[in-house]
Design a protein around this nucleic acid. Sequence first.
DNA 1: CGTAGGGTTGAGGTTAATCAAGTATGGTGG
DNA 2: CCACCATACTTGATTAACCTCAACCCTACG
Lengths: 229, 229
Amino acid sequence: MVVAMSETLRKTPLFFNLPPEDLSRIAGISSLRHCAKRETVFREGDRADGFYVVVSGSVKVFKLSEDGKEQVLHILEAGQSFAEATIFEGGVFPANAEALCDGDLLFLPKRPFIELLEKNPKMALRVLGSLSKWLKRMTDLVENLALRDVEARLVFFVSEEMKRRGLPLRDGAVYEIPVSKNVLASRLGTVPETFSRTLKKLQEEGKIRVKGNQIRILKAVSLFGALAR
Amino acid sequence: MVVAMSETLRKTPLFFNLPPEDLSRIAGISSLRHCAKRETVFREGDRADGFYVVVSGSVKVFKLSEDGKEQVLHILEAGQSFAEATIFEGGVFPANAEALCDGDLLFLPKRPFIELLEKNPKMALRVLGSLSKWLKRMTDLVENLALRDVEARLVFFVSEEMKRRGLPLRDGAVYEIPVSKNVLASRLGTVPETFSRTLKKLQEEGKIRVKGNQIRILKAVSLFGALAR
DNA sequence: CGTAGGGTTGAGGTTAATCAAGTATGGTGG
DNA sequence: CCACCATACTTGATTAACCTCAACCCTACG
């Protein structure tokens, strides 16, 4: 059991390359939690006494407005951790999390984890790096939502995800949407209708070809051209 | 010199309540930098080999779109630190920073600072807390930009800032806009015209009274009522 | 075969950006 | 001290992106 957990932990960026004894120490304090599709992992405002690592399945983290509109902040898949930040501050979750499909989560409780960090500066630095990454991602998200239109946000998102998966950004490459288009629309800060129309428009312009959840890149240059960075 | 710096450091959340020897160690590795109004502190993409603490004056951190539109992410005043995150990751600044008025900044170089952290888990934990706060703030920013209209964003911003300054959210209280209305508009994800109109509308509804940079709260209940949290 | 959930399409409305022009305001040099 | 200019801010009219609502399609699945 503890061994299997270590195995998962080893693959998460947060703990990547940590010596085995550290990993088993972490595994020692953590617990496994199974989540069914649509199950709530936590709600905004809940006491946060730990954070999570996705072992299998996928999870969305989102904010709700008063009238129930939702903005997806993150979509998480196996090996990714989330809500690390909350345990160093505040004590309540600043957003909601829900399982998108059946899967397992590792729960890392706050107190023991902080004690581990206090004794292990190297690990603390690792966690600092992870938080920094999240911060960078959120900065990008703000930029995208505020400064670009839906089409640009979609294109940017796809290019980032393809990079993350090691797919080349060239003609013929295929990006498979890992979640329902509804969820992706919300992550892009829009609604399913607009999302659908945007895909259609790009297809009519011959830049992509959409089949189900597969997006085939047809004109990488004109698609990604504007993203010079 | 080093003593004066310690004095500033002592007041920043990042280093609040740290023992004097830690403070002077930090002061020892940091350097003072004067910035004139409008001076660029750093640009997006610049190599990031350190972060900053505002000693005096104020600074805006912002993103630019291709066509030059700007989204202000943060407005920083004396005692606040910024860009801490970048030193644990990446190595380039993910946004731009510019002085809003003449002032002094403390520069904390990356390498020496990290070495300090490695030897001082307590300080590392403090930095973790700080990054967590930033993450929380960005989460709120995303929520605001994506889920609320301009009026709600304005009201939320004012209420948060008043809380931060210890002002009571009640009738008669006065919030003084610390920067140009242009900058605030951009921080709220809108343009000066819309910002101006929104203030006007709230004034016509008798909820606030605007005089120059002063906003007097007239109907706290109906203004802040929707922000039940 | 029927229903439910996800997805698409069309029509219409709304928010807020843009464009254009006018009004303070504050600093500078004459 | 005043004239001038730049900058900040305001106001009005127009426009565009995108949200909403409503209907419909499609596929999976009991």
